Amino acid sequence: MRLPLLLQIGILLAAGHAAVAAPAPERVDIAGANGKLSALLYKPDGDGPFPAVIALHGCGGLAGKSGPIKRRYADWAEQLLKSGHAVLLPDSYGSRDLGPQCHAKTPRVLARRERLADILAARHWLAQQPWTARQRIGLIGWDNGASALLWAVRPQTAPGKGEPDFRSAVAFYPDCRTSSRLGWSARAPTLVLIGSSDDISSPSACRSMVDGAQGRSALARMVVYPGAYHEFDHIGVTPHLTSANDPSVPEQGHLGFDPAARSDAEKRVMHWLGR
């Protein structure tokens, strides 16, 4: 029996990613505003200087059940590493002895406060490394991490004199509702990627946010993938309705892998962060 085309693409894509083992990351400690910030670092071989990307985990946290990093983030770090980027993944929850925060009624780590502070600390640390190309530090984030990214690129959070700024940023399915209401704009080119069927984040709020930033913002673009759900880039996850019993995923809504959206997103991410 012939498999549907999208399913064939998904199987080939997943097999291609699984065939190459992700390199082991190095654990580093960063001085943060509220104590030590732990992070994982993937760095190309050699002395550099290398372009660098700060990668921001979602509400489920950075660590997986069987290791220090979930396969999704290791997968993306591997792709960025292949393109010559160093990748730094701050652990905003583990550094504070917290588990997943997807179902937290009163979050102890807010995108606009603690996570923003973590991003700034990570950028400062990267700028001090001799192997970093200081003018080529980018950002990438997923859901809650992407929401924090939106705060980090606002004009109000521009770095002080002598500190390098972000070169570009990519936000996967952020919650744009607050940023849209506050009249968001960006000082660094920012790309928002989201599925049209994302019922966890809000595609319409992201569209309003990006459209509202036109004319008073650095380059801001949005790509909406038809029929794609939350976590459309998460290889191997069959689309499904989330469970209230799993604290590592959003409490209500659909998520799952979309091979066509993931394939397109890979090309766009590499182009955007390489600009």
Score class of each variant (00 low, 15 high):
Ser180Lys: 02
Pro51Phe: 02
Ile200Ala: 08
Ala21Ser: 15
Met209Gly: 05
Phe50Gln: 01
Ala63Ile: 00
Arg177Gly: 08
Trp151Gln: 08
Pro164Val: 11
Leu150Trp: 00
Asp175Glu: 13
Arg2Asn: 15
Ala228Met: 04
Ile235Pro: 01
Ala77Arg: 02
Ser180Asn: 10
Leu3Ser: 08
Asp233Tyr: 14
Leu3Gly: 11
Ile69Thr: 03
Gly16Pro: 06
Arg96Asn: 05
Val20Phe: 10
Arg134Gln: 12
Pro130Val: 06
Pro44Arg: 00
Arg268Ile: 06
Ala77Asp: 00
Ser196Met: 11
Asp258Ile: 13
Ala186Arg: 02
Val153Ile: 14
Asn245Trp: 13
Gly67Val: 15
Leu219Phe: 07
Gly60Tyr: 00
Ser243Phe: 11
Val223Thr: 14
Ser208Leu: 13
Pro44Thr: 01
Val153Ala: 14
Lys161Trp: 09
Gln214Lys: 15
Leu255His: 02
Ala86Leu: 10
Ala148Cys: 12
Glu251Trp: 09
Leu273Lys: 10
Thr238Pro: 03
Leu13Asp: 11
His57Asp: 06
Gln8Phe: 09
Ala86Lys: 04
Val20Met: 07
Ile194Pro: 07
Asp97Thr: 06
Gly61Leu: 00
Ala121Thr: 11
Gly58Asp: 14
Leu150Asp: 00
Leu182Cys: 00
Cys206Leu: 09
Val237Lys: 04
Leu88Met: 09
Asp198Leu: 08
Arg167Glu: 13
Pro25Gln: 02
Arg27Ala: 15
Pro100Tyr: 01
Leu193Gly: 07
